[in-house]
Amino acid sequence: MKEQQALYKYALRLGDNALIQSYRLSEWCSNGPILEEDLALTNFALDMTGRAQMLLTYAGKVDGNGKTDDDLAYRRKERDFYNHLIMELPNGDFAFTMARLLFTSAYEFYFFNELKNSADETLSAIAAKTVKEVKYHMAHATDWVLRLGDGTAESHSRIQDAVNELWMYTSELFETNEADAVLRDKNIAVDLLPVKEAWHKYVSQVLNEATLSIPAEGYMHTGSSKGIHTEYLGHILSEMQYLQRAYPEATW
C-alpha cells in the first residue's frame, strides 16, 4: 500500500468516525431528557460534524480526484465507510448513549493527544483543535456515568447493561491495519498501544468509581477497517444520503 492511499484511508476513517457519531448524537435533538442535555448532545454533534468536514476535505485532497467533503459523506457506499462499529450502534437509552460517549470520547482524547505529534501537519492541526472539544465530551460523559452508576437501582442497572453490551465493540478501536503500518513508519499515524493503555486505565477508574463492574474479556466485534459493518450503518446512510441520491447536485 502506498503512502498516499494509506493516508487517504486513515483520514477517511477518522472523518467517518466523527460523521457517524455526529449523526447518532444529533438524533437526540428534541429527545434529550432535559432541554440543557438536548443542547449539550447536539453541541457535541456539531463539534463532530466540524471535525468530519475537516477530515473528509483532507481525505479528498489526498485522494487527488477532486472529491469534496460532501462527495465523500453523501455519495460513498456502505462498504467504503471505515468508522468503528461502536459509532454506528443505535442510541438505545440515555445510559447507552452516555456509556458509548465515555468509551469513544476517552479513546478520542488519548488518540488525538498523540496525533498532535503527527508528522503530517494537517492531521496534527486538526488533532490540536479536536483535543479541546473531546476533553469536554469526556468530562460530560464521565459525570453522567458516575451519576447513573452511583444513582438509583434502575439507573445503575441501565448503565451497567449499556457497558456490558458496548464492551465487545471496544477492542476494535485499538486494532491496526495496513494503513496504520505504512503511516507509522513515517511518524504520521498514532501508536495505538499507549492509547489503549491510557484508555483502559481511565475507563476502569471511572467504572470503578461509578460502582460498575468491568466486563470480562470475551468475544469482540471487528470488521470496520475492511468496510464490513453492522446492519445499522446502511440504515443511517439511506437516510443521510437520501437527498443527494434522489436529487444529485441539489443545493439550497
Binding site: 432541554l35 440543557e36 442535555e37 443542547l39 449539550a40 460530560h140 459525570d143 451519576r147
Partner: peptide, 19 residues
C-alpha cells in the same frame, strides 16, 4: 438552567449560553 448539582449547572450553562 436546571441541574442536579453545581458541576452539572456549570456544564449546562456552558452548553446553553456560551456556544
Amino acid at each position: 438552567v436546571h441541574a442536579a448539582d453545581s458541576k452539572m449547572a456549570l456544564q449546562n450553562a456552558r452548553d446553553t449560553y456560551t456556544r
